[in-house]
Amino acid sequence: MSELEKKTESGSVDAAKDGASSEQKAEGDSGVGMGILFFIAAFAVCFLSGWLLFPSLLYSKKEQPFNFNHALHVAETGGCESCHSFREDGTFAGVPKNSSCIECHESQLGETEDEAIFMTEYVEKGKEVPWLIYSKQPDCVFFSHAAHVTGAKMDCVTCHGNIGESTTMKPYQENRITGYSRDIWGENIWGVKKNPWDRMKMDDCAKCHQEETGSKGACFQCHK
């Protein structure tokens, strides 16, 4: 039998030795406590920064060249397709070029400062407006507006939401790693979405394709 076992069995033989043993135990307890404390502190710091600090570090905010009032233009022109049109060959023109804008804005029509910027900085200088495009998908993704809008007769709102009713342009948040807009992943950093247009990742495409066509589709349909 070892000495330790003897001690345990026969009880304490030395008070001084006993005292030393309980002190050791207390020290051990406090070590665990400290461990837990550090755990909680580190957890809290990382958890909170992951949720709160990380998103603001990940995205840089950029302002559009000037504000554009969609609601006003929709009211004047009648709908999305008057400006976001399809070309003769069926391809989607995307954001209109100055040449389309000056069909109406040959000279300044209103009195807003934004229109003044557009006229003096871009139309007069013959420069295209470097709009930051919220919905631009990565280069490795092929997307055909023609297939969805012309072919499947989908509404713009289904994917883009009620942009046509907005009067101001929100700041463009650019992902510092990928260089693409925050709108692709969605405003919610956890990726939770309420509306279809809140996020436009591959799973979102697949989900809709599954529901509408019965298949998620093949890789090469979008990744050429």
């Binding site: 837990i36 404390l37 992951g50």
Partner: peptide
């Protein structure tokens, strides 16, 4: 150990 585990758990449970 606590610090490391806490950080790991915190980060894992965050979207980062």
């Amino acid at each position: 150990l606590g610090l490391g585990l806490g950080a790991a758990a915190g980060v894992t449970l965050s979207p980062m």
